[in-house]
Design a protein around this nucleic acid. Structure first.
Lengths: 224, 224
DNA sequence: TAGTTTGCTACACGGACGTGTAGTCTGAGG
DNA sequence: CCTCAGACTACACGTCCGTGTAGCAAACTA
């Protein structure tokens, strides 16, 4: 009767087929853009069966949230309670399926409780990571620390949410496990390269201008 | 009769009010989730007037694309044709209104021709920026260069697309011109800090693992 | 002043979609 | 053999929403 327990003990059944189909259709067209008819067709069942199993479209969406994000969220919260830096969380994110990743990307934009909680958990982990390792630059609880943690979360998840455009630019599916490491490698390269840039004279001017509160004039690509 | 030319010579009129209202409703609920009735109510007009001015819902969407993204796209393309690094483009992005930024964020996820073109233009600028400044690390046309440019674009635009979550984490609207510079400042800090991290012993291991093609095990927050 | 265009509204049509209902089939338990 | 529960389907209902039509009032033209 409850939704979460039967997420994986019962797979291959109609219920699981519907959920997997919904994951894909929701990810591609959004919750509003997806129709139960399209999901039913993709799963090879009738619309009535969806209602039978999930009660309503919103119930199906909640089940998708629980399946695609719930496990990640649990892992993230477990990592936050432990003292050690999260080994399980990163592993869980990596082994989450491509379909779940696409769904999560949509959920982050369309607004989902689970997705928001996951973002907040990631931000909390980033804040602890920063303030434990560089307590002088990122004092725990300071505004600059919270800013940096939130921006870091947004930047990293940006590669997930914008995977369509990212894949187009890379010439390969950025969510495919075969190509995904290229994203991480590129990020490391960007970090070191941009650090050099902002240490230079011109980059320093931009950095100073940003600290003052006005826009720079020659930074290629800044957020809106 | 044609749609694009009258985007700004005629403001304050009903047409402009509809367009501005649509920008907000589309940004908040998505194109599918938005109803012409809701847009009409927000603009204080009837649904018939929307049809009179824009022909259809899709026509209104195209007008929103042209208004919110067209100017940015023109500026980006102009910057790409010139040799100098884009001063006008960054300035245009900064002075684009908050409503346009929200709309662009949605358009990037829901799929819009203009938004995709803008992402590609930004990626092209980033690629030129990288390969001109560090030709040894980022040779023009190399796969690693294209990867880095695309990832850089996705990361920077991630702070725009995920502005809802980012604002929650920062405790202030990240799109508000008053608080937006904090985002840029945080990014600069993250670049320098993470460069230090990846230069360390532990970070080096992660960096090496990413270059090999398998997932690391202790990086807090990696893309899916 | 008559005619035309333009901005705008009210209202109805038709289709799509979420939801509700009744019913069939299969398999397990007594 | 009976029955009862669960999986599953077919079909109808009601509503929402995009679209189409008709028409009014003001402004501009001649």
């Amino acid at each position: 009767m409850n939704a979460t327990p039967s997420t994986s003990h019962d797979d291959l059944t109609g219920r699981a087929r519907i959920r997997d189909a919904a994951l894909g259709v929701f990810a591609e067209h959004g919750v509003k853009g997806a129709t139960v008819q399209a999901i039913a067709s993709a799963a090879g069942v009738s619309t009535g069966l969806i209602r039978h199993h999930f009660g309503s479209k919103e119930g199906l969406r909640a089940a998708c949230d629980a399946h695609a994000i719930g496990a990640l969220l649990d892992e993230a919260r477990r990592s936050l309670e432990e003292d050690a830096a999260a080994p399980g969380f990163a592993a869980a994110m990596y082994q989450s399926s491509e379909a779940s990743a696409r769904y999560l990307a949509r959920a982050l934009v369309e607004g989902s409780r689970s997705a928001s909680d996951l973002f907040d958990a990631g931000t909390a982990m980033a804040e602890r990571f920063l303030s434990e390792r560089w307590p002088d630059r990122y004092p725990p609880g300071a505004r600059s620390t919270r800013d940096a943690a939130a921006v870091m979360g947004a930047m990293h998840l940006g590669t997930l949410v914008l995977h369509t455009h990212l894949s187009r630019g890379m010439g390969a599916d950025s969510l495919d496990p075969e190509h995904a490491p290229r994203v991480g490698a590129a990020m490391v390269g960007i970090y070191t390269t941009m650090a050099d840039f902002f240490a230079d004279e011109q980059g320093q001017r931009i950095s100073d201008a940003l600290s003052d509160g006005d826009a720079p004039s020659s930074d290629p690509r800044e957020h809106s």
